[in-house]
């Protein structure tokens, strides 16, 4: 399997406190890799390391054999796109202008000719075409998140890193965003997403990486990794994993009468 992005032996300390320990992870083309783990497990830090935002104190992250830290902003931006958790904007740009910003790295290159097509397609895929003329700061949280996703899609990169892409979304748009992530993977992109919803992770991931206390506890297919034992230990809360007609559901253990609700 083609793995363009490889983290090996990555260790990160933030303000003296260790956040990641000796993390090895391969991000492969054509698959959706989901990072899960309790709060403070280091998911966002790991995503930051993979995206090049954070240079690890120990270990390396390489993109096609070159260290991510050595790549220039433009080179990196033509290979990987990032959807941050927070999506602020300083001025009142229209949605279509924000999505167009995703094309910045292709300016002055032959790919620039495709700008309009790609932007239109990205708007459609994130279901924000009808908002294209709206001014970004007037949008709701979910609409902003989808606009930012459209910006990420418009970047047309092999690697797509999504930090909690479903956090602000309603059910329909959660499914829409996950379907987009799946489609990208099916088309040969490598997609990494941080998710909190374990059932959602089980439903969509090709591989799941469970992080806890800055260490990788398990990586593999959802059925192999998302076990009641491991999850209960990692989350320090009893969890049940239920197979419902071939779909994996992860449920927190509650009082007996609530367990099946």
């Amino acid at each position: 399997m083609n793995a363009p992005l490889v983290a090996s032996g990555v260790g990160v300390e933030l303000g003296g406190a260790p956040v990641l320990h000796d993390v090895d992870l391969e991000v492969r083309l054509g698959e959706l890799l989901v990072l899960v783990g309790p709060n403070g497990a280091g998911k966002s830090t790991l995503l930051g390391v993979l995206s090049g935002d954070q240079v690890p104190q120990r270990g390396t992250v390489t993109l096609d054999g070159r260290r991510v830290a050595s790549l220039r902003a433009g080179e990196l931006a033509r290979r990987r796109a990032v959807l941050p958790q927070e999506n602020r904007l300083a001025f009142g740009f229209r949605v279509v202008d924000v999505v167009r910003m995703g094309r910045a790295a292709w300016a002055g290159r032959p790919e620039e000719d495709r700008d309009d097509l790609v932007v239109a397609e990205a708007l459609r895929r994130s279901d924000v075409t009808h908002l294209a003329e709206r001014v970004y700061p007037t949008l709701s949280g979910g609409e902003r998140a989808r606009t930012s996703l459209a910006r990420v899609l418009a970047q047309e990169t092999a690697l797509v890193l999504l930090d909690e892409p479903t956090a602000a979304l309603d059910v329909r748009h959660v499914e829409l965003v996950m379907a987009q992530a799946r489609e990208l993977a099916a088309a040969g992109h490598a997609v990494v997403a941080v998710l909190h919803d374990l059932t959602l992770a089980a439903a969509h991931a090709d591989r799941v990486c469970v992080l806890a206390d800055g260490r990788v506890r398990a990586v593999g297919a959802p059925r192999a990794v998302l076990t009641a034992d491991l999850l209960s230990t990692v989350y320090e809360h009893p969890l049940e994993v239920v197979d419902l007609d071939g779909r994996l559901l992860v449920l927190p253990h509650r009082h007996p009468q609530e367990a099946l609700c």
């Binding site: 083609n2 363009p4 083309l29 993109l63 096609d64 033509r78 290979r79 229209r94 279509v96 790919e111 495709r114 309009d116 097509l117 790609v118 932007v119 239109a120 397609e121 990205a122 708007l123 459609r124 895929r125 075409t129 294209a132 003329e133 899609l153 418009a154 047309e156 990169t157 092999a158 690697l159 489609e183 990208l184 099916a186 088309a187 040969g188 992109h189």
Partner: peptide, 24 residues
């Protein structure tokens, strides 16, 4: 160049029968 240039958005190029969505 393994990850550069060939990862276009699926279906971003119009197939002919479906017109591309209009931009404002």
């Amino acid at each position: 160049t393994a990850v550069a240039g060939r990862h276009r958005l699926p279906e971003a190029v119009p197939t002919g029968d479906v017109p591309p969505p209009a931009l404002p």
